[in-house]
Design a protein around this nucleic acid. Structure first.
Lengths: 242, 242
DNA sequence: CCATATTTGTGCGTATGTATG
DNA sequence: TCATACATACGCACAAATATG
């Protein structure tokens, strides 16, 4: 191809994409900031606007930028790195990233254990449970919606304590469980449902990462089971190497 | 609510949903099989059809069943459990589940390293790379599409070896790397793109789990970097406790 | 509320280099 | 050598959403 650069052998649009990616990585374009217009980028690289569009499409595909018709193309704010460890505490993870963590109790309902829940919590089917719905956010941006079930017999005041302390760790500590750990973590993904979408401030059709987990005490007693939905575009899970 | 059972305190639709879930767990409804019609279920539980619909909607939300208009509601085949370890081998994981793993080389292309890739593989920008596109399936069902980059200087025959052995492990072993491990794993989710959708046999708009990983030799030398897209509805990742 | 400019989204046509058979 | 298909790149035109004064 005569139009393709003999200098490198890479497709033009790839080089443009790489250049923009580098500019973002270097901080020349800031998170949330606006990129130059497509025609402007095209001029600066000496290529056709379609070539720039292809480059931007590749970056948008990977979630680095977001185009808004009539407005411009913007750098997506970086995803929050969320390490999955046996001792995962939301506030610690968010706080470590220099962000302001917040937990908000949305609802607390008494309900009997279904078969599946009873099995996970090592209770009998029909045993009284408390279901807690909590919205967690970082710097005011909704990150996850967590539905947590605990035994009503063991943690009768969980709703009140969570509502005031906004921390599940403190609820457990109040009942003498100073140490607990993640027993199992299952990760799937699905499309956000309507109620979750409005609470997470997500558009319909956007993906959520679904994390189902069981936390146990030091002696292995199951304490709580959680089903959390994370706005996929705002987080990335990191699996720790040994 | 008068329609809510005084006997248990659980919303009716929850009890119906739980009953159906139990039946699926028990194997009374087989994966891929068809559930009775909504009216039939309604009769057997002695509830209104709307209640059954709500129960089925809740199950569909969690991916347990899949409703097809004009056809019926079907039990989704169970998600393949995919443990994330430092030594994750696709064929071992699938094989351990009693399924028939298959890897198919779709494309192998030479291309120079972009800045990001070069950094991950500890090479210079522009260094020759080989990009391998592989489709992995279990029992003929597409599971993941993996794009892997390796150094062309170090693994010149990777495409040929992968095409015949259908195993990345064997490619590395051929070059003397009998032991390698996962250095880092990043998990995000997004919506499947058009080309991936057709290869993964997914409908447009469905979510994919995106796993970006770097594998290193025993001495820490980066060997390959991969960006894999998993059909979210067919897998669940398990994070191992210590 | 309106008019206008800007910006992204979309379509069609043309040309060229590469891969395949 | 020829025919065909495909990906890349360019040029032009217009639609649709947004910003501005």
């Amino acid at each position: 191809m005569s139009t393709e650069a003999a200098t490198s052998g890479v497709a033009l649009w790839r080089r443009v994409a790489d250049g923009i990616e580098l500019a973002i990585a270097d901080g020349r374009y800031l998170p949330g900031g606006k990129l130059p217009g497509e025609t402007e980028i095209a001029e600066s690289y000496g290529v056709n606007r379609h070539t720039v569009r292809r480059a931007l499409a590749a970056l948008a595909e990977r979630g680095l930028v977001r185009a808004e018709r009539g407005s411009g193309t913007f750098v997506r704010s970086q995803r929050i790195a969320y390490p999955l460890r046996t001792r995962t505490r939301f506030s610690e993870i968010i706080g470590a990233g220099g962000r302001e963590p917040r937990g908000q109790l949305i609802a607390a309902v008494d309900e009997p254990a279904t078969g599946a829940l009873a099995g996970q919590l090592d209770l009998k089917t029909g045993a009284p449970l408390i279901r807690l719905e909590a919205l967690r956010s970082a710097d005011g941006v909704p990150i996850s919606l967590a539905t947590t079930w605990v035994s009503a017999a063991r943690f009768p005041d969980a709703p009140r304590i969570f509502a005031t302390t906004r921390s599940m760790t403190k609820v457990l500590a109040h009942y003498g469980y100073d140490d607990y750990r993640r027993l199992s973590t299952r990760i799937t993904a699905s499309i956000v449902d309507a109620t979750d979408a409005s609470r997470l401030e997500l558009q319909a059709g956007r993906p959520v990462l679904v994390v189902e987990s069981i936390d146990v005490a030091a002696d292995g007693t199951p304490l709580l089971t959680t089903r959390a939905r994370f706005a996929a575009e705002r987080v990335e899970f990191l699996v720790e190497g040994d």
